[in-house]
């Protein structure tokens, strides 16, 4: 059972345009890629990946809707309510790994680099629409000798998508694994590019969620529960899912395009 925990915010950090990290003490063991449900009383309860997994944990929010704007306005000393952690996170893999982060997806991925703590074994590709929205570049450099960035508009790093960048990096060196989080269209292209280069990997998905514990069925993709069977899946599992990269379910359970 995941008791609803009220935690006092110890630190807030602006990470980039519209991104903010909230740090708090949360004394539970969490795998990279696992998530918590964050309660915003009177508004909503939303799934969030933990972006920091040390003693002082953290979530990194992108201020896009009412809930995330309220979370973004919280200050040191304010409290927030979370339950979790939930789901299957990223595995601890042994081998040369390329971490690929699309936009806010970096929040779920960076803890892998921290856990590995081996500069030579991990390379990191971070992509965003524009320079201001790139997050965790400096933090990445603490854990990897090879950190590269891409922006859709070319304002920093390679011009293009992070999948283009990852493809380029896979041509340069041989990787054993990919581990990635970002928009599903990006993950779907990355899975294909990885396959072309003989690199398998793990990908973290996002779906509308209610219960978090695998009973309500709101987040299912082809019969798999993203909250419990995922959110991290192996590429081989995703390849057999006809909805991957194409469709999801809305709040009523109707199938809609991504």
């Amino acid at each position: 059972m995941h008791k609803l925990a009220f935690l006092r915010i110890k630190e807030t950090v602006v990470e980039g345009k519209g991104f903010k990290t909230l740090r708090f003490m949360f004394n539970r063991k969490v795998r990279p890629g696992q998530f918590v449900m964050v309660w915003i009383p009177g508004v909503d309860e939303i799934p969030m990946s933990l972006s920091y997994l040390g003693r002082i944990k953290g979530i990194t929010i992108r201020e896009v809707g009412e809930s995330t704007k309220i979370l973004g306005s919280l200050k040191v000393g304010d409290s927030m309510a979370i339950r979790g952690p939930f789901g299957r996170g990223f595995e601890r893999l042994s081998g040369k790994t390329l971490l690929v982060c699309g936009g806010a997806g970096a929040a779920a991925v960076l803890p892998i680099a921290e856990e590995m703590d081996n500069r030579e074994r991990v390379d990191i590709a971070i992509g965003a629409r524009t320079k201001d929205e790139l997050i965790f570049e400096e933090r990445s450099k603490m854990y990897s000798d090879n950190v590269r960035t891409s922006t859709d508009d070319g304002s920093e790093g390679c011009e293009g998508t992070v999948v283009d960048l990852a493809k380029h990096m896979m041509k340069e060196r041989k990787y054993d694994f990919l581990q990635a989080c970002g928009p599903e269209s990006m993950l779907s292209s990355l899975l294909k590019v990885g396959k072309e280069h003989g690199v398998s990997g793990q990908f973290s998905l996002e779906r509308f969620m209610r219960c978090g514990v695998g009973i309500c069925g709101s987040c299912v993709i082809n019969g798999k529960r993203v909250c419990t069977d995922g959110p991290v899946f192996w590429g081989e599992e995703l390849e057999s899912m006809s909805d991957f990269g194409r469709s999801k379910r809305d709040e009523s359970g109707q199938k809609i395009g991504l």
């Binding site: 059972m1 909503d44 309860e45």
Partner: peptide, 14 residues
């Protein structure tokens, strides 16, 4: 079609 209620929709108890 019905969207259901907004979250929280589940409370975990002992």
């Amino acid at each position: 079609a019905r969207k259901g209620y907004s979250n929280p929709t589940l409370v975990e108890l002992p």
